[in-house]
Amino acid sequence: MEMKPWKKIKQEYKDQWVAMTEWEEDEHGDVTKGYVAYTNPSQNAFYEYLKGHFPKKDLAVRFTGKVRVPLLFGTAIEEA
């Protein structure tokens, strides 16, 4: 299987969590191309699947959609 450029992966798997078992990255760690092994639009289902698969296999994981975080994490964390 051939690795695909990240731009193509984003187009092909829109709004999905993508796990790559082989990938190339630039000097910062950004993925430039990769081999897509698994995708799922649900993050929780995606990680649940990863727990039972790819044992001891390093992965690169990205979300291909928009990342929107509201202003909710700008808070202190206290011990509960």
Binding site: W23, E25, G29, V31, Q43, N44, F46, Y47, E48, L50, K51, F54, P55, K56, K57, D58, L59, A60, V61, R62, F63, V67, V69, L71, F73, G74, T75, A76, I77
Partner: peptide, 27 residues
Amino acid sequence: PLRSQNVLLVFDPGAYRTIIKTSLTDA
């Protein structure tokens, strides 16, 4: 303990502490 993972993490100077999602730490 199981693997290493290349990830993207949000740059958030407004957060007091670094947070990692539980489903990822579990995996």
